[in-house]
Each structure stands twice: as C-alpha cells, then as structure tokens.
C-alpha cells in the first residue's frame, strides 16, 4: 500500500473529508462503518499527527472485513481486455508467473458516499470486474545491483529502484508504487464477494414499486387531511450466487417518499409505511379542488451475508416507484339542516 493510501498510515480510514484519490480507502470495512453504526463523536479515535500511524483498531464487536481483507496483495496481474468504459480489465491471480518481477496490491476504490464512482459504472461491461486502485512493488532479482555484491548480470526488464543490500532474491522491497486504476477480475482469488459486487447484484434484483392507499379513497375534500398508507411488503429476501458464494440479500425500505401532486407541498417523507384511520401519521391537506396525481417512491437498503456468515451493509440504495393514482379533491358545500329532522 502506498504511504498516501494505506489505512495503516493514518489516512483517517473513512474520513469523509479525504479525497477519493487520497484514500485507498475505502476498504470494505469502511463501507460498513459509513452505512452501519456510526461511532458517537466521543468515540472518534484521536487524530494521527505522526508520519506513520498505527493501524486503526476496529470498533468493538465489528465483524471482519467483508471484502476479504482489502487492500489485497496478489502475485500476478494480467491485462485480459477492456472494461467498459473505465479502462483495462485485469485478471488477478495468486499464481506466480515466471519470471516473477512484481507483486501487486489491489483495492476497490468506488466511494459510494463521496460520489466518486458507482459500482458498475466503470466496469459495467467487464464480467466480475471491480474498479480498483492498483499498486506495484518490485521483487529483488538475481543480478540486481547490490552495493555489497556488485552485479554480475544485467538488471531485469523494468529498471525500478534497486533493492536494499542483502535483500533475498524474490523478496519485495520498497514502498508500493502507484500503477493506475482499472477493472480487476478477482474470480480466481479466494476472496468473498466485495460490497461493490454485492451492490451490483442488489441493483438488478426485481425490487417492486409499491402501490398505496388513501383515505378517503380516491376522493379528497378540500381542507380535510388525506391519509396515505401502504400495506405492501416492505422487506424482502433474495439469494444470489457471486463467484460460487451464496449471498443472501435482506432488503428493507429506508425511506418512503409520498408525492402528493400538490405544488403547495409536493412530497411527504416518512420512515414507515403509514397507517389508515385512526392511526394515520402520513397525511396531506389539499387546499384547492382538482385532480392530483400521487405516487409513492421507496428507498431500499440491504444487508447481506456470505455463505451464512456475518451480516454487512450493502453500500448503496435502490429507489423504486409504484403506480400513480389520481386523487379527486372536491369542495364540500355547506348545507343547513334541521337538527330535529
């Protein structure tokens, strides 16, 4: 990991103030922290004012990294084609090539919260490709210049800096050097699905838009609160296969957005599905006659498990829209009646 990007080097981990390019950030654990339990302000680790900082301790009870300990070091990275539209597609593997000159470090770099990129945005056409930051580190080779033992053979192909004296052949040396970004196929690595891969599956699930009911039904009265609610299922479960891993997605609605069709107050927001009279809590009072086109938009979030393991938050949401319905709001005319009639 490069000094500028390593969590071990005190980059604030999930500090939202860091630029994406600065923060390699975005370890899979980081996604969980961003979307899951936010530590209270008093629980924030002290700022690191050193040049090298100790690795941050995971919060108590935190599950292990869901992404398979990214950043991950792999033995081989090979260009196998083009990702769409983000650049080259690489295949990562732990098979040591011959000759073996470098090792590679890869880490997903989509910062969903920061909006730098979305999973699938750059690697949409690349099967199982995940947009990654790529670093490289040279391995000491036979004949590398050595102040103690002068070289007796030409150096290897790419003239990286020379290893420290006494570095055994085949040993990595120096810091991680930036080698670019690209879509990386990790199917040959024994790593569980990354949160980004799970998100890519989440967005293609058939998550329904919800119908809703109003009271009075489809006929409103000026100055009389109209009640909105839905009785549709607001949770769901889907099972998908990602590179042979069984991933169970548990979806739930994080937010309900009720579009009233009334320019005076176009949207109501609630955490719950609403309830009918007399327990209503989502209402809107129309002040003018007319036909109003109302619709319910739902923001879905999800958690997932891999092969029955711990549960993690999926880094991202899905928005669905249900069928619209017209509410005919009429004005009641006062009529005098005989109370003794």
């Amino acid at each position: 990991m490069t000094g500028s990007r390593s969590p071990e080097l005190c980059l604030g981990g999930c500090d939202a103030g860091l630029r994406m390019s600065s923060c390699i950030v975005v370890t899979a654990l980081c996604f969980v922290a961003m979307l899951g339990d936010h530590p209270a302000a008093g629980d924030e680790p002290p700022p690191c004012d050193d040049i090298i900082c100790p690795p941050p301790l995971p919060p108590p009870g935190a599950p292990p990294d869901p992404g398979g300990a990214f950043p991950k070091v792999v033995q081989h990275l090979e260009s196998i084609g083009s990702g769409t539209p983000g650049g080259t597609l690489y295949l990562a593997s732990d098979v040591s090539p011959t000759p073996h000159h470098w090792i590679w470090q890869i880490e997903p770099m989509c910062d969903l919260q920061g909006g730098d990129c979305m999973p699938g945005e750059y690697c949409a056409g690349a099967d199982q490709g995940v947009y990654m930051d790529i670093n490289v580190k040279p391995l000491a080779q036979p004949g590398d210049p050595d102040p103690v033992a002068p070289p007796t053979a030409p150096g290897r192909g790419l003239p990286f800096d020379t290893p420290l004296p006494g570095t055994p052949v085949g040993t990595a040396y120096g810091g991680w050097l930036p080698a670019g970004e690209g879509c990386v196929d990790v199917s040959q690595l024994d790593v569980p699905p990354t949160p980004e891969e799970v998100y890519e599956q989440f967005v293609v699930q058939p998550i329904p838009g919800l119908a809703f009911s109003v009271q009075p039904p489809d006929l409103g009265l000026v100055n009389l609160p109209e009640i909105y609610y839905t009785t549709e299922p607001t949770t769901g479960t889907d099972t998908v296969d990602i590179r042979g891993y069984t991933v169970v997605l548990s979806t739930a609605i994080a937010q309900f957005r009720w579009y009233t069709g009334d320019p005076q107050k176009p949207m109501l927001v609630s955490d719950g599905p609403g309830l009918p009279y007399p327990n209503q809590y989502v209402t809107h009072t129309y002040l003018s006659r007319g036909d109003y086109l109302a619709v319910l938009e739902t923001i879905w979030q999800a958690t997932y498990t891999v092969d029955g393991g711990p549960s993690y938050a999926v880094p991202g949401t899905v928005t669905t829209t249900g069928p619209a319905r017209t509410i005919n709001v009429v004005e009641a005319q006062p009529v005098l009646t005989d109370p003794y009639d």
């Binding site: 260009s79 539209p85 983000g86 650049g87 790529i134 080698a179 670019g180 970004e181």
Partner: peptide, 9 residues
C-alpha cells in the same frame, strides 16, 4: 479506456 495502461507505462 487506456488510461490505466497509460499510467502503468
């Protein structure tokens, strides 16, 4: 498309 390769180079 080729910027990753470019950066590698």
């Amino acid at each position: 498309m080729g910027h990753a390769v470019g950066r590698l180079l």
